[in-house]
């Protein structure tokens, strides 16, 4: 399954990845190759098979007690942030 340049551009846009002009054809070739490779799955007969989303069958979600266990650590956590002010994470102006 060969992908077009436009498809690569739209995938990259959806994934919020900037690709350089040099990178584009490289990904176009390798993604096409990967899709061709995984195309082998078509051959498997999965007519009545339920998809397996989780490796351990029969387990179910545990429910947490509704208790507040966390304190305010925003100053510490924001030490990793590129840009903050007055406790807020800053990004370029978002126009709604």
């Amino acid at each position: 399954m060969a992908l077009t340049r436009e498809q690569i551009e739209s995938i990259a846009a959806l994934a919020r990845l900037e690709l350089t002009a040099a990178e584009l054809p490289v990904y176009q070739a390798s993604l096409s190759r990967i899709l061709e490779f995984v195309g082998a799955l078509e051959r498997a007969d999965t007519a009545s098979v339920t998809p397996m989303a989780h490796p351990l069958p029969g387990l179910s979600q545990r429910l947490r007690l509704d208790a507040v266990t966390e304190q305010d650590h925003h100053a510490e956590y924001q030490q990793n942030a590129p840009q903050v002010a007055a406790g807020l994470y800053l990004v370029p102006k978002v126009i709604e």
Binding site: V68, H74, G87
Partner: peptide, 24 residues
Amino acid sequence: STRSKIFSGSATAYGAPPNAQANL
């Protein structure tokens, strides 16, 4: 109206200072 968030133990109270109730 839970006390804590749906997937974490942070408080859900309204009106806290910015990000004071945002844990990891």
